[in-house]
């Protein structure tokens, strides 16, 4: 009888050890998978941050005027120094007031085209500055898909003094 008891107890112990081994193994796999996923997430975040920094540097140091804006309603969200200098203003808000008041319905045209096509390819816009100078610009923009936001590049073409 003691032999039978020992056999039964050994089977119980071995079976428990096997089940436990599986459970610990599974827990180890879960933890190492989680660690790997977190490392991958960190790597992607770092990559995104570096890419964002590169974009910011390009945006800020560009010789062309650049801005990010909402075309409906017209709100300027982000600008670089070049575009502020082109329009002879110092803040995003001043630029927004200027652009939302462009003569001959040009602001409305920008909104309509962005709504319809999603891009504006070198549209000519002009506006007279308070100092009596009429400026012409080439305005290109691309809408962010599914939003009312767009990124624009503006190039100054001419500046001519208004007569009278």
């Amino acid at each position: 009888m003691p032999v039978l008891l020992n056999d039964t107890l050994s089977v119980i112990l071995i079976a428990t050890a096997v089940v436990l081994l599986f459970a610990f193994g599974y827990a180890y796999v879960i933890l190492s998978s989680s660690r790997r996923i977190v490392q991958e997430q960190h790597r992607r975040i770092d990559e995104l941050r570096r890419s964002e920094e590169r974009y910011k540097a390009l945006f800020m140091n560009s010789l062309a005027g650049m801005m990010k804006f909402s075309f409906s309603p017209f709100i300027v969200l982000e600008t670089n120094q070049t575009i502020l200098e082109m329009f002879n203003v110092t803040t995003d808000y001043e630029l927004q007031r200027l652009l939302s008041d462009l003569p001959n319905g040009q602001t409305k045209r920008i909104e309509t085209v962005l709504h319809a096509k999603g891009t504006i390819d070198a549209m000519e816009i002009e506006f007279p500055t308070p100092t009596g100078i009429k400026r012409r610009f080439l305005f290109s923009a691309k809408r962010e898909e599914g939003t009312n936001l767009a990124h624009a590049v503006v190039i100054l073409m001419t500046a001519e003094r208004l007569i009278g």
Binding site: T16, V19, L20
Partner: peptide, 21 residues
């Protein structure tokens, strides 16, 4: 829950047998 289950499921299954010993 997983570790407790894995460590005790067999023993629990045989608890009345072990008790009889």
């Amino acid at each position: 829950v997983l570790l407790y289950g894995a460590g005790t499921v067999i023993i629990t299954g045989f608890s009345n047998t072990i008790l009889a010993m």
